[in-house]
């Protein structure tokens, strides 16, 4: 035992994938604790928590939601590039409805989410029924979706003061931003559905070997369409949050490039782009990692033109740690040193 000082650490380098994103996140937090005084300061204001950590949860909620949907798609071996544009559509529809139609709020949310879920279904049909490569199938809606959103809002930024809609992105529940509740709810329901029923197994089997899954009697087309529809739904909720947060539907800018953040969160979280095994919690940690990184740049006062460089370094480091080959290399170095 004493001869091998790395005995405790060694299994980490070859073991569970969730460890690395968590370690990355912790490193960032420790870094902030040292260099950014006040990072962990939390106070109670008007009955809710107030501080940088709360901001990270709140601002990160959009990518977390997108990442939940994206994880399931990536598990089936696909990818969804249209989520950013779907956020724009959701925001546009909701803003137009609250400003121009006297509908109950539930109906407005229902219409909005139904629309994005239908758009997601269309993606799924293109992928599963028509057989188009996911990256191309969803690219169509990524490009067209923003145009549709601009059409809905007539190219203008629509502002609103509708109290229930404003609450979605700005309200508080249980002393935390309401968005945290939304994320936890979505995560809880998705985890239960994928881990306590056979759905998770279906997803992984489709991602691992679609043909084998079909021969086993799994309706692979249906599985795929459902995950794309679900991703559309998640994008809809994220779009509502983003729009509500600034009390305006900014169709041309909302959710821009966020599809890439979501994919990054999923991959860093430990789900491989090749499909198969997936971890929802890992994706959430990945999303938190991105948001913490962004906030850290603000806190340190890194000039915005330079900020992408340190961000990229952290991202590369975490991705390297995720790579099994790279870890084996490190392990062998440790092994040699002991001998």
């Amino acid at each position: 035992m004493m001869n091998d000082p790395f005995a405790r650490i060694r299994p980490w380098f070859s073991g569970a994938s969730l460890l690395w994103p968590v370690l990355g996140l912790l490193t960032l937090l420790v870094f902030n604790a040292i260099y950014a005084p006040g990072f962990f300061r939390l106070e109670l204001r008007d009955g809710h928590l107030y501080g940088t950590l709360v901001d990270i949860l709140n601002q990160g909620s959009k990518v977390m939601l997108l990442a939940i949907g994206m994880t399931l798609i990536i598990a089936t071996g696909g990818v969804d590039l249209s989520v950013g544009s779907l956020m724009a559509i959701a925001g546009a529809v909701a803003a137009v409805l609250v400003t121009q139609a006297a509908l109950p709020f539930a109906a407005i949310v229902g219409t909005t989410l139904a629309l994005t879920a239908i758009a997601g279904t269309a993606n799924g049909l293109l992928v599963a029924a028509v057989g188009i490569q996911p990256i191309i199938a969803t690219l169509i809606l990524m490009v067209a979706g923003r145009g549709i959103a601009m059409l809905i809002t007539d190219g203008q930024i629509i502002t609103f003061e509708h109290a229930p809609l404003v609450f979605v992105g700005n309200g508080h529940l249980f002393a935390l931003p309401f968005t945290v509740t939304l994320v936890l709810l979505t995560l809880g329901v998705t985890s239960l559905a994928t881990r306590k029923t056979a759905i998770g197994l279906f997803l992984e089997s489709v991602g691992d070997n679609e043909k084998a899954a079909r021969y086993c009697g799994i309706n692979t087309t249906l599985v795929k369409v459902v995950v794309y529809a679900f991703s559309g739904l998640c994008a809809g909720v994220a779009g509502l949050i983003a729009t509500s947060n600034i009390k305006a539907a900014d169709s041309s800018r909302v959710g821009e490039m966020m599809e890439l953040d979501a994919i990054f969160a999923v991959v860093v979280g430990g789900t491989a782009l090749t499909g198969g095994r997936f971890t929802l919690v890992g994706s959430i940690v990945g999303a938190l990692l991105i948001q913490t990184l962004t906030t850290t740049m603000y806190n340190l006062g890194v000039p915005p033109a330079v900020a992408p460089v340190p961000k990229a370094i952290v991202i590369v480091a975490v991705c390297l740690l995720q790579s099994e080959k790279f870890r084996q290399q490190i392990t062998s170095w440790f092994g040699r040193r002991q001998a």
Partner: peptide
Amino acid sequence: FRRSGGKEVTEALLKGS
């Protein structure tokens, strides 16, 4: 140049520098 960017950055800066 975004509304959401202006809000997120200000929110973060108000708690720090």
